[in-house]
């Protein structure tokens, strides 16, 4: 059969690399064909998710930040300083988390989606024209965020002025100064070229961009045991591939950015410098519990338990 798989990024970005590996695995081990539809070719992120829910697409990769409009609990991945900054701890969290393997599949199933896996895309960094070392430096800095209450709340708590702007206007907005900065993983700052119109990149260590692969549930349930296993194996292979690919991806992207624009500075905040930002977590968690849906508390508690387990 021909299976259709849409995702939110270009073919050579993290979701695209994941999708290509998945396709390669499926096609090498079966007669099925996987057609890939990168960013924008079948509509916006919400469009491709809906198309998967209605069964036109079989697979979709959507980040929980977007899924939050449908499954409010998924916004937990936007709470700052929840995910570990240590790579190995992060990876073992994604492998073994009870929240990801137990609770979220139930929540996604209610929306007709089979959650296949969640995986990290990379540490989120902040770009700006002014060096950032403390919340005071964020004073009057307009940071572009996605229109999500948790991100707005986070950046307010950091002391910045969160400013929603449609993605198409971000590059021009940074260039002319309507906005002063934005947040994204390093590979995305590189590929979207926004570093060209920014002076500083700051690593607050506050988050790792998380994303999820899912399938239409009726489609998945209707497959033979064999095909289901095929998909699980392909997902696992792509998951391991992407973790490996990520080793050093952030560093490589930052090097590419510095090579293309030598004047840019990349600053990693020290533990002491991060402390005041970290102190805002409780406030944002409260916002999450307020808007995170009926199982918000359960999800947050389980995430924390999983993270503790991953740390030991």
């Amino acid at each position: 059969d021909t299976w259709r798989y849409a995702f939110e990024e270009a073919l050579d970005e993290v979701q695209g690399v994941f999708a290509q590996k998945f396709k390669e695995e499926v096609e090498a081990n079966s007669d099925h064909e996987v057609q890939l539809f990168p960013f924008g070719t079948l509509g916006e992120s919400d469009n491709i998710l809906e198309q998967t829910q209605s069964g036109i697409l079989q697979f979709v990769n959507q980040s929980p930040g977007f899924t939050g409009a449908l499954i409010p609990e998924a916004q937990v991945f936007l709470v700052p300083y929840l995910l570990p900054e240590d790579e190995q701890q992060l990876y073992s969290f994604f492998r073994d988390s009870e929240a990801i393997n137990g609770i979220f599949p139930e929540l996604y199933a209610e929306q007709g989606l089979e959650l296949l896996t969640m995986y990290p895309e990379g540490e989120v960094m902040v770009t700006s024209n002014r060096p950032i070392a403390a919340p005071a430096d964020f004073d009057d800095v307009k940071v572009r965020v996605m229109t999500n209450p948790l991100l707005v709340s986070s950046y307010q708590a950091f002391g910045a002025t969160p400013t929603p702007l449609p993605w198409g206007e971000v590059y021009g907005g940074l260039q002319t100064g309507i906005i002063d900065g934005h947040e994204n993983p390093a590979f995305f700052i590189e590929s979207t070229r926004t570093f060209e119109v920014q002076e500083h990149i700051t690593r607050l260590g506050h988050n790792n961009f998380t994303t999820a692969l899912m399938a239409n549930k009726d489609f998945f349930d209707g497959l033979s045991e064999e095909d289901q296993q095929l998909i699980r194996n392909a997902t696992d292979a792509a998951f391991e591939h992407i973790l490996e690919y990520q080793q050093g991806l952030t560093e490589a992207s930052l090097e590419a950015i510095e090579a293309a624009k030598p004047s840019i500075t990349v600053t990693t905040l020290s533990e002491e410098e991060r402390a005041p930002f970290r102190a805002t977590t409780e406030q944002v968690e409260a916002t999450f519990l307020e808007i995170g849906g009926p199982r918000a508390q359960e999800v947050l508690d389980q995430m924390k338990a999983d993270l503790e387990a991953a740390g030991s």
Partner: peptide
Amino acid sequence: MTQASRGRVLPALRIPQ
């Protein structure tokens, strides 16, 4: 009607889409 049954909300306004 499908959108209504899925319960999608507008992220900032938090009203049903």
